[in-house]
């Protein structure tokens, strides 16, 4: 089943790095997933995160407040 990956962040450098990393991992491992950038603060606050960037997979917060490593992302996504 295709996953929905949301990356929450207001557009700071760390958030952009995270989006790039997620995209890379998804492509490299042929993971079926839709990547959505959530940049609006009101939408971000729906998830009750206090620090960005955050990675949400199928509406579950997996990582917040830091840039994840690729290995970590792979673990979360597979």
């Amino acid at each position: 089943m295709s996953k929905v990956i949301k990356i929450l962040g207001t557009g700071c450098p760390n958030c952009k790095t995270t989006v790039a990393l997620v995209t890379e991992v998804v492509h490299e491992h042929h993971i079926e997933a839709e990547i959505i950038k959530v940049e609006d603060i009101m939408d971000i606050m729906q998830y009750n995160v206090l620090s960005t960037p955050a990675v949400v997979v199928d509406e579950e917060i997996k990582i917040k407040g830091r840039v994840p490593s690729k290995e970590e992302l792979l673990e979360i996504l597979s």
């Binding site: 207001t10 700071c12 620090s51």
Partner: peptide
């Protein structure tokens, strides 16, 4: 603290 987190943090505290 990363200044990019100041907004979500602020809202979270207010909430």
């Amino acid at each position: 603290f990363c200044s990019c987190s100041s907004v979500p943090l602020f809202i979270g505290f207010v909430k």
